[in-house]
């Protein structure tokens, strides 16, 4: 299904790209021919991924190390992209943390950290992305929210709040940026088989699968397909949408 011409000449940034959904999205964009800046917090975490992606013979993968919780570091990262490529066409705000806790036991520190990583980073990165994108006639911002953002989930009030916030940002910026031809959409994954799910007991896991119409957990690649579409001109008239990738969990 790979189309190396779909995003040829385009420059993308994917945060949280060292594993899980972010890594799959980065791979999808490289396969479609884009130059992709993969971002991660831990120096060296992208070494192996870069080798794999650059051996695909499609686009190009590059590493950027910074903490999305640090606004100054975000600015510096965009400065690097500006100097190297003078453009940005696609921003995927994927980096996120999930710390389950009954609300009575959730610390204020955990609330602040979740807000900074999952929500404030999206606001700050969008500030810089919009200016770089506007120079070249537009772009596509893709925010990762969650089925929990709209539906809620016991033990996940803090995470759900941050992801509901991402939906508000997505719809507001879609309106604010439309005249500049910058599209802003959100992807709401259901239960995807990543490290975030690994913590579940076998019983809970089976219960989750039973609630999915298509009878299986999603894969990171299931989410990547939608990202490539939203990044491309095939989605050129789509903005302000929150699209579920959940195998029929929420219909």
């Amino acid at each position: 299904m790979s189309r190396p011409d779909l995003l040829a000449g385009r420059v993308a940034l994917v945060t949280g790209a060292s594993r899980g959904i972010g890594a799959a999205i980065a791979k999808g964009l490289v396969e479609a021919g884009a130059t992709v800046w993969l971002a991660a917090r831990t120096e060296g975490a992208l070494d192996a991924t870069l080798v794999t992606l650059n051996a695909l013979g499609a686009g190009e993968a590059r590493a950027l190390y910074f903490d999305v919780a640090d606004p100054a570091a975000i600015k510096q990262a965009f400065g690097t992209i500006q100097k190297a490529d003078r453009r940005l066409d696609v921003l995927v705000n994927n980096a996120g943390i999930l710390k389950a806790s009954m609300i009575e036991m959730a610390s204020v520190e955990m609330m602040d950290e979740t807000y900074q990583v999952n929500l404030r980073s999206v606001l700050v990165a969008s500030q810089y992305a919009a200016r770089l994108m506007a120079r070249n006639g537009g772009g596509s911002i893709i925010n990762l929210t969650s089925i929990m953002g709209a539906q809620g989930f016991a033990g996940q009030a803090v995470y759900a709040a941050s992801k509901a916030g991402v939906i508000g940002v997505t719809k507001s910026l879609a309106k604010e940026f439309a005249a500049r031809q910058i599209r802003v959409n959100a992807i709401a994954p259901g239960a995807i088989d990543t490290a975030l799910i690994e913590g579940l007991s076998e019983e809970k896991r089976q219960e989750t699968v039973a609630s999915i119409g298509m009878g299986r957990l999603g894969t990171p690649e299931d989410v990547a397909g939608l990202s490539v579409f939203l990044a491309s001109d095939a989605a050129r008239y789509i903005t302000g949408q929150v699209i579920g990738v959940d195998g029929g969990m929420m219909v």
Binding site: K75, F78, G79, Q82, R86, Q127, Y128, A130, R131, L132, A134, R135, A179, R180
Partner: peptide
């Protein structure tokens, strides 16, 4: 305010800078 954003994008491109908020 909308035109101001267009102006900022033009300034950043013309002078190759990234302005602080």
């Amino acid at each position: 305010s909308v035109a101001h954003m267009a102006l900022i994008a033009e300034l950043e491109a013309a002078y190759d800078v990234m302005l602080d908020t």
